[in-house]
Amino acid sequence: MATTTASLSNQKAAELKDRAAPFVPKEKKLPLGKQLLLQALLLFITFTVLFPILWVLSMSFDPRGLRPLTLTLIPANASLDAYTAVIDKPTNNPVTFWTLAMNSFLLATSVSVLSVLIGVFAAYAFARFKFSGRQFLMLAIIVVLMLPSVASLAPLYVLLNRVQFKMDELNLIFFTIKNVSFNLRNSLIGVGLAMISGALPFAIWNLKGYIDTIPKDLEEAAMIDGASPNQTFFLIMLPLAVPALAVTAFLGFLTGWTEFAISWQFLTNPDNFTLAMALWNMTGQYADNTPWSKFSAMAILVALPVAAVYLAPQKYIVGGLTVGGVKG
């Protein structure tokens, strides 16, 4: 798998800084002409980076809604109408933003928490124990990591679709429900299972990568003091791995929050739809029907929680991104 490029270079930076400690680099002054040239270049790059973001922001406050014909940074009569409209009823389906957000949130949270909780045990075993079959099992996990989730859509769809039942009457002790039908494929649980099938190997690999970098000294000390492997795991390893658990869970959450292919393919009941599906529903297939302002407000509402959490521990996550390799 790809190595930790970012953290690798950070480590190297720290190493070299130590070595070069007595050497104090003197801050050279940049000639003014060169400074201005670079500033102009950087301003242009800043413009290209910010352009789409400002466009969406401006559009989301724009009350014109249907046909934006010119670019404006601060639209006339700016209002929050698009946001209130989106929160009330984002698409033509009779569901509110909160239903969609709740579905996305439950899906993302359960997938990330379950895969981290189950994965950390396996990751510990792979990182710290030598046992027969270890190589084979790790290879089996790597193979899954290479496979993008879209490529295993067909079997998951067919198999989960088999778990279904239909009953005219379901007699519970106190009351009867009529016309019960359940199809695992067409439920959030089914989507969650399909997502865990890819998220769990990713979590195992990501966490193994982190545990590999934790020095063994503390565990060895605990062992010498007579701790059993279980005690070592729960009392030493887990507390040490908390940042890794958090990052892995966050990455899993991010994947779940923006997951599209599986839920789009599996779900047919609007009550189960997710934010990602709604956002795509609002993107114009035909430009005249695009609800421009509502779409922009929705895009911001979907991106904002993720971006906010991302920016906080950004350093760890950008490094962590490369640890687990390549699950797309």
Partner: peptide, 14 residues
């Protein structure tokens, strides 16, 4: 980097 690619894709499409 911090914007989900789903949002990037739909926004650029528009």
């Amino acid at each position: 980097i911090v914007i989900p690619t789903l949002v990037v894709g739909t926004v650029w499409r528009n």
